[in-house]
Nucleic acid binder design. Sequence first.
DNA 1: GGATTGACGTCTG
DNA 2: GCAGACGCCAATC
Length: 108
Amino acid sequence: MSQDNYFERVYELTRQIPRGRVSTYGRLANYLELGSARMVGWALNKVFTDRAVPAHRVVNRKGELSGRIHFPTPTLMQELLENEGVVVVDHCVQDFDGLVWDPSDELQ
DNA sequence: GGATTGACGTCTG
DNA sequence: GCAGACGCCAATC
């Protein structure tokens, strides 16, 4: 179904996050003009279990894996990031400032 | 139909 | 610099 919901936008944009990179809810929300980062988190919460979305690449502004608790296992999110080459310590992305990915930076 | 919650962010104190 | 409160918009209870 052609759902113009934020659901589809967040879902598609999250898929475009390159491997080894991470993004934030606020940046995605800002690019999608959602007006609220919570919309991104809400959409991902419905998406991650229904669609194969790399939600593990989306973290909060602090670079913390705030959504790890919603994964099947709280360590799965960190494992996936480390598997992609992202250094995660104490559930926080290291060098987050250098790994953060902006949709407007790639898609422009 | 109203109140609360939610994977957040920004401002003010 | 850190802590607390407010705002967003939609879904769920």
